Amino acid sequence: MRLGNGYGRFAAVVNSLLLLLFCLMPVCLMPAQAQTAGQTPGQNDKPAKSISLAVLGDSLAAGFGIKPEQSFPARLEAALKADGRTVTVLNDGVSGDTSAGGLDRVDWILGDKPDIVMVELGANDALRGIDPASTERNLSAIIEKLKAAGVTVWLAGMMAPRNFGPDYVTAFDGIYRRLADKYQVPLYPFLLEGVAQDPALNQADGLHPNPQGVAVIVRNILPFVTKNLDLYAASLHRPARP
Rank of each mutant, 00 (worst) to 15 (best):
A54D: 02
E193W: 11
L201W: 01
F224L: 02
D112P: 05
P186T: 08
A196E: 05
G96Q: 07
E69F: 02
P31H: 05
K81H: 14
L20Q: 02
D92L: 08
G101Y: 06
W108V: 12
A100H: 08
L80D: 08
D104G: 08
N163D: 09
I51L: 09
S140T: 13
G6Q: 15
A240F: 09
M25L: 14
R75M: 11
K147E: 14
M25F: 08
F172A: 13
T36Y: 12
T36I: 13
A180N: 04
L17R: 14
A233V: 15
P223Q: 03
A100Q: 14
D97Q: 02
A34D: 15
Y168W: 03
A233Y: 13
A48F: 05
V214R: 03
R219S: 12
D230F: 07
D125F: 04
G206L: 08
L20T: 13
L24S: 13
V13C: 06
I66Y: 02
F72H: 04
V106I: 12
G93A: 03
D83I: 15
Q203C: 00
I66V: 15
P209V: 00
G150W: 01
P161T: 09
E69W: 04
Y232M: 09
Y176T: 05
M25H: 01
L236I: 15
L56C: 01
E136F: 03
V169E: 04
Y183T: 06
C23M: 14
N138V: 10
G165L: 13
D115W: 05
V218M: 03
C23A: 12
Q197A: 11
D205S: 02
S99R: 11
P132M: 09
A123P: 08
G93N: 00
D83K: 06
N202H: 00
G150V: 09
R162T: 06
L53F: 07
D167E: 13
I130E: 04
G96N: 07
G157F: 01
N124M: 03
P166C: 00
L56F: 07
I142S: 05
K49L: 07
L18Y: 13
D115I: 10
L21F: 14
P239F: 02
R162E: 12
G65N: 01
D167N: 12
L191I: 15
V55Q: 07
P166D: 08
A156M: 12
T135Y: 06
R128P: 03
G6F: 07
R137Q: 14
K147F: 00
V169A: 04
S52N: 11
P68D: 01
A148S: 08
T86E: 08
V14S: 06
H208Y: 00
P166R: 03
N210I: 11
L229W: 01
V216D: 05
G42V: 12
S134Y: 11
W108C: 09
G84R: 04
H237K: 13
P186R: 10
A200N: 04
A141M: 15
V151N: 02
A141G: 12
G165R: 11
G194E: 06
Y176W: 09
L21I: 14
P114M: 04
I109A: 00
V87K: 07
R177K: 05
